[in-house]
């Protein structure tokens, strides 16, 4: 999957300035970097909800996107999962897998932050996409829920073969899930490479400083 150069500015402030990129099909790409490095902006642009300076990025195939603040709609948890037209049985099976079956009839507005995040991921993974973009999908989850979500994401990715953009603050999560890592700093691509290699032996001093800071 080829991406054109992407720039985004708000007034005179540039928030993203990336060169043309090629993403490996069927691979999970973790996007890491400090706050304000442009990770979410990149995710929103690729998802088509934010238009970069040069016009919308051409989309190939179906794109699924889970924003940082994914919204639990004011309806039952089960109905949330059926929004895209899925049948009741399939939706119930998905809730079962995500450990939410007991909450199927409850209004999604009453869920805790972690449950709402699980619902958002479960709802998104009801459909198949060629590109899946997840913006900090497990930030609100506890350890057990995070590991479950990661396992289900890996299963989904193996089943559908989709390309995944995973914005995350968790370097251990990037190590567990990603095949490729893109490290952003101040809106620029500081370094990219194979996940195991980049996280163990970063070439760029900025990446090394970032990894040292998080004591990986």
């Amino acid at each position: 999957m080829k991406l054109p150069p992407i720039t985004k500015t708000y007034g005179s402030r540039g928030v993203l300035d990336l060169p043309a990129l090629e993403l490996e099909d069927g691979v999970i790409h973790a996007v890491i970097g400090a706050n304000g490095s442009g990770k979410s902006t990149l995710a929103r642009i690729l998802a088509g909800v934010l238009v970069p300076d040069g016009g919308a990025v051409p989309r190939t195939g179906r794109v699924g996107y889970m924003p940082q603040r994914s919204y639990p709609f004011r309806m039952s948890v089960l109905r949330n999962l059926r929004l895209t037209g899925a049948g009741r049985d399939r939706a119930m099976a998905q809730l079962e897998a995500f450990g939410l079956a007991g909450l199927a009839r409850q209004n999604a507005k009453g869920l805790s932050g972690g449950e709402a995040a699980r619902l958002a991921l479960a709802r998104l993974l009801m459909e198949e996409y060629s590109l899946l973009i997840l913006d900090e999908p497990t930030a609100a989850m506890d350890v057990a829920a995070t590991l479950l979500a990661e396992e289900l994401l890996l299963q989904y990715q193996a089943r559908t073969g989709c390309t995944v953009i995973l914005v995350t603050h968790s370097l251990t999560q990037a190590r567990r899930l990603a095949g490729q890592v893109l490290f952003l700093r101040d809106g620029h691509l500081a370094e990219r490479g194979e996940a195991g290699e980049l996280l163990r032996h970063p070439r760029c001093a900025e990446t090394r400083a970032f990894l040292d800071f998080y004591a990986l």
Partner: peptide
């Protein structure tokens, strides 16, 4: 904004 972004992400 949150509803729109979530719904667009689901392809609604």
């Amino acid at each position: 904004p949150d509803i729109r972004e979530t719904a667009l992400g689901l392809g609604l």
